[in-house]
Amino acid sequence: MIRINDLSKEYKTKKGLVMGVDRVNLTIAEGEVFGIVGYSGAGKSSLLRCINLLERPTSGQIEVNGRDLTKLKREELRKARLKIGMIFQHFYLISQKTVAENIAFALKAANTPGEKMTSRVNELLEMVGLTDKKDVYPAQLSGGQKQRVGIARALANNPSLLLCDEATSALDPNTTLSILRLLKKINRELNITIVLITHEMNVVKEICDRMAVMQDGRVVEEGSVYEIFSNPKAELTKEFISSVLSFEVPQAILAKVTGSIVKVMFKGEVAGEGVISDMVQHFDVRGNFLHGSIEYIQEVPLGLFLMEIQGQPDNITRAVSYMEGRGAQVEVIQNGH
């Protein structure tokens, strides 16, 4: 369990004080994957680095597993940090050391005995799928393999919390997906709480249970990933989600539309039902799809469709009411000519 209470972080610059994190309050449950989303300068990296006190907050509290890290003495904080792993965007591996030696470096910091160190390194290599790279140097690895070493190193001391600082931003899409699946596997099998920051909504959609959206150092929206994707409130959140779920239809196509244009959303199991086909059969209307897809967020379907409905106004009204009665959210974008 992580509690962030009224947390602020100020930076002194030549132009004066800059508020990097501005009175943030968050609660992150044990065992969940929590995403923090925002553009550059939103304060998400500062917030993440405050969680393990790599950056000391100006004010506020950081509680991890019931302990306020801001009140710990130096040695107590060092021990607490051993249970907080961190994965970085640019890997930060030691180029002169082998893969095994890079992982062992974290174990040495915890004064792990030599015989335990060897077996733990081998265990971690198997966990991240790099058993055959044990004696290889970082320069001989791909970006995805380097990040797997970083993950193994972060897991070395059996942390209860894993912080991911843009962990996939330097990777191609396929490699990103494999790393996210590895992180989700680690989360499920080891019950490790994961907090990750990103500016990519596809990352959040793939792995996170809950999320917060940051702007100018503040949290502007927070909630379950599914609910935020299906019903975003803040304008910034809507902007982020449009990068994944786009309803843009060329103006030339819209100009030819003579019927009513409706946006239809189906949540959960309703997304797999034939609501639209049933609607067309029950009422004297014709449907024409302009845009549509079914996305899966945490394996739960979310159906999104933009369609033209042609017919008499009363029939269109009844058709819309029918879809709403079947569990759809319907918004009339444009009435027929």
Rank of each mutant, 00 (worst) to 15 (best):
N288Y: 12
S293A: 15
P250N: 08
S243A: 11
S224E: 13
G85C: 09
T198L: 06
E239M: 10
N335H: 15
S95Q: 12
A106H: 05
I333N: 05
G66Y: 06
N5A: 05
L48F: 10
N158K: 13
T13P: 03
L125D: 04
N335D: 05
S293V: 11
N5C: 08
A234T: 09
G114E: 14
E331Y: 09
Q310D: 08
M117R: 13
R326S: 04
I228P: 12
N231A: 15
H282A: 12
S95F: 00
L306R: 13
L236A: 07
K146Q: 12
G85W: 03
S59G: 11
N102M: 02
V99R: 00
I197R: 07
Q298V: 07
A234F: 10
R74P: 00
D68A: 05
T58R: 07
P232F: 07
L183S: 06
L182I: 10
N174E: 14
A170G: 00
P173K: 01
G129H: 06
I36A: 06
V270W: 00
G311D: 01
T175R: 08
N288R: 12
M19W: 09
E235M: 13
L236S: 10
P159S: 08
N187Q: 12
T70V: 14
S95V: 02
L254K: 13
L47H: 08
P138C: 00
I253N: 04
K133G: 02
Y226Q: 09
V149W: 01
S119C: 06
L130P: 05
T168C: 10
I186R: 10
V37G: 06
G272L: 14
L306M: 14
A152Y: 06
K73T: 13
D165Q: 04
L290I: 11
I151K: 03
G20M: 01
L82Q: 15
I62V: 15
M1S: 11
Q329R: 14
K184M: 09
E239D: 13
N5D: 13
H90T: 06
K73N: 15
E55V: 09
T13F: 05
A255F: 04
E126A: 14
H199R: 04
V121Q: 02
K79F: 11
A154V: 12
T317D: 14
A80T: 08
S169A: 14
I84W: 03
E221R: 08
V99N: 02
A42F: 11
T13L: 02
V195G: 01
L302T: 03
N5K: 15
G41R: 03
G223V: 11
I103P: 01
V99P: 02
E206V: 10
I316A: 01
T13A: 01
C208W: 07
M86W: 06
L254C: 08
L141N: 01
D132C: 03
E273C: 02
T258A: 08
V149F: 04
S59D: 14
I241H: 03
V285Y: 00
Q145F: 09
E76A: 05
